[in-house]
Write a protein that binds this DNA or RNA. Structure first.
Lengths: 362, 362
DNA sequence: TGCATAGATGAAAGCGCTGTCAATTGCCCT
DNA sequence: AGGGCAATTGACAGCGCTTTCATCTATGCA
């Protein structure tokens, strides 16, 4: 690769407009401008039908003329309702959580709730800090990814007195509400799928090694053991974060220690696509020479050539359900749903990158 | 594709722990528990060296025992400092903004600022609403993607009395601070790069058609016109959001109207990779039969086979600079940087998917 | 015509915290 | 020993809004 032609334009400084903060217009500014009391303005904005049409119109005019924007902080403090949902995800760059966050926004935004997202960088201490920070904003509910919070974080969440949803995985002992799927079962199923195709020399490529990846690997190990396979040389894993390039690298590593590998289960799709690229680069035909299965069923799995078989996880659905349950609890009767733990399962989507082992060869 | 084996476990309901909200512990709870005044507790938490070691320890114990979490809302209201930065991006799922958001978090989090992100779904009205909502939270600065805000949104931002950064593009008339690159120039450069390689039948594939994609297309048109090329049949565009599958589809469409296409400039990498997959599917060799250049230089460009040539945009850098400038202004002297408009440019990264036109054929 | 009643409006009291300034203490210096 | 000063601590008044309750119309009815 060679970096070429760096274009960098001139920097013409535009006109300077300072505009530093004079006091922002408040409710009472609007009130005196409209010649009414502050309470009336407040009502006109929140419960318009409690205010006469006449005043309402005058207030609307004042609001627009003064460019009034209600101070949510003051509102939240006075009413003890913040209209805020706290969300903690381990990564912002992982496309898996993009789907998840999109679902949360899709549900909460129209409902008038704002989603506050903090990331934990896949670290328990950061997660605890994020949870604490979020709780300080008095969200009306908390939605966290995973089930591996620290004891202190758990305690904070339990004492917050708000609905708490743990997602993506199934917990034996949920804090409050739990929606997800069994990562162990999913890892087992992916491996079992390859075993049932007739393969035995099945590699596993894993990166980051966060709790969910570990559990998938545990599923892999369990399945392989059932078929009497020793997995020591078949696993290529690293703590580095997943990338396409790392997928290629780790796959190559696995291949080095197990040259007769027949199939590979990658712990996520990024690694799987990286492995696929590496196969193309080396002239290994997929699926003729090697079968590949990924995990998560990201969009590109259906488009790549060959299209990637993957384990589809209901990320959007998990977040959607979490959001809907939270909304029910928060504005509704205040009682939790009947089911405290919801298993949304997973699906193996079979595409072109896997096929049964040929009777004779690999 | 066939969907197979749906695993969905049993749903065992865990023990019910209701735990509804008793009043949360406040500063004065801690104060009376520790036998001091509320102010002292406040100080012990925010400026510990103003409080004697003795009291500080007693207070720390009380804080821990009562599980006290400061109410940020009240704090923000009283101090007029929210420690919050408002950010508006057009999409949460687009990996381009994942990089951007990561940079913002990387800079702001350690500095003690919280990033509030709202998305505008590539719609001006949604953006205006997002800006208004965010402003209601009294952020200490606003960072928005793009330069195409509505007049009203502009006015709100101008009147907010806080630093405002418009990013990703260069504006003729920035609201306040502006950091980005010229999308037109970048589109022009990508096209010019292919022209300079000797190609003339250069297709352009574009999706979503948000302002930046349009400007890249404008650059493409400008370059093509300089070389006397009519672009009418060469452009395949759609308002649908970019996906890998759409890249394949649109590329196929372009190929249908221009069978003798020699090269293609895709307005983003997702489309480019989709086009590459489609080539593989059809047995079109890249770059032997067709050259492909993408845009943004996402991580997979370097890993795909063949590796994709792309226009690298400094997304992380843009956000980083924006964040640093904001921090300077917010906590520092309060004065804006010398440069109100910063051009971070772009770079063409040449890889395997492009090569010079062969003298004889294509 | 007079009184009850619903509807519309306003006054006052905080929400939980911080900024400001006053009060207290202990210690150093002359 | 007394004054001065720094170091601590506390009292009080809001931040801008909502909640609650009181007040003040209109209207309906007897």
């Amino acid at each position: 690769m060679l970096r070429k032609t760096c274009w960098q334009g001139m920097t013409q400084v535009p006109k300077n407009s300072q505009g530093r903060s004079r006091r922002r217009t408040t409710l009472s500014d609007v009130a005196s401008h409209a010649g009414v009391s502050a309470v009336t303005v407040s009502r006109a904005l929140r419960q318009p039908d409690m205010v006469s049409l006449d005043l309402r119109e005058r207030i609307d005019v004042s609001v627009r003329e003064l460019g009034y924007i209600p101070n949510q902080l003051a509102s939240a403090l006075a009413s003890a309702r913040t209209g805020t949902i706290g969300v903690v995800v381990p990564s912002l760059t992982n496309i898996v959580f993009a789907d998840y966050l999109k679902a949360l926004h899709d549900i909460f935004q129209p409902a008038g709730f704002q989603v506050l997202v903090l990331n934990s960088r896949y670290a328990l201490v950061d997660e605890e800090r994020a949870i604490s920070t979020l709780l300080g904003q008095h969200p009306e509910a908390m939605i966290v990814a995973g089930i591996d919070q620290t004891d202190h974080a758990r305690k904070l969440l339990e004492n917050a007195g708000i609905p708490v949803v743990q997602t993506m995985e199934l917990a034996d002992d949920p804090i409050d509400i739990n929606i997800g799927l069994s990562q162990v079962d999913a890892g087992y199923a992916a491996t079992r799928y390859l075993l049932d195709l007739g393969f035995r020399r099945i590699g596993h490529v894993a990166a980051r090694l966060e709790p969910r990846a570990r559990r998938r690997m545990e599923g892999y190990r369990r399945a392989m053991e059932e078929f009497g396979q020793d997995t020591n040389l078949l696993v290529a894993s690293t703590r580095r974060p997943s990338t396409f390039a790392l997928g290629a690298e780790m796959f190559a590593e696995g291949l080095a220690s197990t040259p007769d590998m027949e199939a590979v289960f990658c712990c996520n799709d990024d690694l799987a696509l990286g492995a696929l690229f590496e196969c193309q680069r080396r002239g290994i035909r997929v699926p003729e020479d090697l079968s590949i299965i990924g995990f998560n069923d990201l969009e590109f799995c259906a488009s790549s050539y060959p299209a990637l078989t993957s384990v589809s996880t209901p990320r959007y659905e998990i977040a959607r359900r979490a959001a809907e349950i939270v909304l029910d609890v928060v504005r509704g009767s205040g009682n939790r749903p009947e089911e405290r733990r919801i298993d949304l399962g997973f699906t193996i989507v079979e595409r072109e990158s896997t096929r049964p082992k040929r009777p004779g060869g690999t």
